[in-house]
Design a binder for these strands. Structure first.
Lengths: 207, 207
DNA sequence: TTGAATCTGTGATTTAATTAACAATATTTT
DNA sequence: AAAATATTGTTAATTAAATCACAGATTCAA
C-alpha cells in the first residue's frame, strides 16, 4: 500500500508540529487542534492518520509520542538515507545549513561544486567535493538522494551524471525540467513558477 | 473564470520553454513537443491551452509568439507587481539574485532584515531596509507580494506585520505554517517536507 | 446511571484533475 | 483530387483528493 502524495506531505508537516507540542509538555492532541495548526480540517487529519493505521485513545485525542513514532515508521527508512547537495551557491548553502543538525533520518553527507575554490571547504560541517568526483563519491558513500542547486545551464548534464551514479531520488531546484528514468523519483520546485502563481492569484482572487 | 491552480503553474513553465524555443529561432510548436519538454502529455498541454482560449493554426502547431503573449495576458498584470524579500540570509539572497534581471512583470524592489549590518547594503541591485520600516516601505512602494525567508522563530510575527501592511500574496519558505486572512494568497514551500517526501518515495516506489 | 456532549473512524458523496476517445480540419502523398 | 496522415479541440470517462455525514465509543454532568 502506498500513501497519497499529499498525505505524505502532510504527515511530514504534522510530525514537526507534534514534536513541537511534545517539547511544550503536551501529551495528547485532538484532530481539530492539529488541523488548526496547519490550515486544514479535522476530517483531513483523521483521514491521513487513518491511512497510516494508527488509532487513538478514544476521546483523549492522539498520543503525541505514539503518533510521532508511527509517522516515523512510515516516513523514515530504518538506517536513514544519505543526501548530497549539488551546487554550493547561495541556494545550496541555504539548503545545507538548513538541514544540518535537524534530527532526521536524512543525512547530508556531501556537497559538490565545480568552483575549485570551494573544494574541500566545509559548509556547515559537510565537505565539498569537486563535481568531477560525483560518480565516485556518490557510489562510495551510498548517496541515494541529490538536491540539485546548480545553475540552469548545467542542470541537464549533472542530472545525467547523477542518474549514471544510480541516484534514487532527486529534488530539483533549477528551473530546467529534467528527464530521469521512471525508477528515479523526481520532485521539482520552481521558484519562478511559484511566484508567478502567487502573482496570478493576487491579481485574480478566486473566491 | 479562474484557472485551475495546476494549470497556472504549467502555463508559467510552458512560457519559459516557449521563450527558449523562440530564441532558438523556432516559430511554431506542437502540443506533443511542448509536452515532451515538460513531463506531461500532449492532451494535458492542449487542455491547458484550451483553458486560456487560444487556438492554433490547425495542423501547424501553436504560434510561439502568439502563445507567449496570450500566456502573458493571463499571468502578468498590466503594470507589474512589486515584490519584497524578507530576510536576507542565504536563502533570501538566493531568491533575490535569482529573480533580478529575469525579464518579468515581477519586480523585487526591496529586501528587509533585522541584522543592522545588512541595512542599506545592496543585494543584486536591491536595497535592504531595516525590518522596523517594513510597514512604511511596503505601503510607500506599493509592494503586494512578499517572499518570506526569515528564521522560523520570527516567521509568525513578521507575517502579522505583513498582513498589517496589507500585503496581498505571500510565498512562505519557512517551515512554520502561517495564518493569514482569506484574502491573502498564501503559497508555502517547505524544504523539509519536500525532501521527506522524496525519501518516502525512494524507500517505497509506487509503481 | 441516564442523558447529553464530544471526538474518532469510515462509508458515501462531491469536487478537482487527468486521461481517453474521437470528430473536425488541415496537410501531404499518390 | 482522392486517400492517407497528422494534429487540434472537446466531450466523456476515469482517477485522485477532499468533504460530508453519521455510527460508535468515551467522558462528563446531573
Amino acid at each position: 500500500m502506498t500513501l497519497p502524495e499529499r498525505t505524505v506531505e502532510r504527515l511530514s508537516e504534522y510530525r514537526r508540529s507534534l514534536l513541537q507540542c511534545l517539547e511544550e509538555g503536551k501529551t495528547h492532541i485532538f484532530s481539530h487542534e492539529l488541523a488548526e495548526l496547519h490550515h486544514n480540517t479535522a476530517v483531513q487529519v483523521r483521514r491521513d492518520i487513518m491511512f497510516i493505521g494508527y488509532t487513538s485513545m478514544q476521546r483523549k485525542g492522539y498520543d503525541l509520542r505514539e503518533l510521532v513514532d508511527v509517522i516515523g515508521d512510515i516516513l523514515d527508512s530504518e538506517r536513514g538515507l544519505n543526501v548530497a547537495v549539488i551546487g554550493i551557491g547561495n541556494l545550496g548553502r541555504a539548503v545545507t545549513t538548513y538541514f544540518v543538525g535537524k534530527r532526521s533520518k536524512l543525512n547530508i553527507i556531501a556537497t559538490f561544486d565545480v568552483d575549485t575554490t570551494k573544494i574541500d571547504r566545509v559548509i556547515s560541517g559537510v565537505k565539498c567535493y569537486p563535481l568531477s568526483r560525483l560518480n565516485e563519491v556518490v557510489k562510495a558513500q551510498q548517496i541515494s538522494i541529490a538536491i540539485l542547486t546548480v545553475p540552469a545551464d548545467s542542470a541537464a548534464e549533472v542530472t545525467a551524471q547523477l542518474v549514471e551514479a544510480d541516484i534514487k531520488g532527486l529534488m530539483n531546484f533549477t528551473t530546467v525540467p529534467l528527464n530521469v528514468p521512471p525508477d528515479v523519483y523526481l520532485d521539482e520546485f520552481d521558484m519562478i513558477t511559484s511566484l508567478e502563481k502567487v502573482a496570478y492569484f493576487v491579481k485574480s482572487p478566486q473566491n
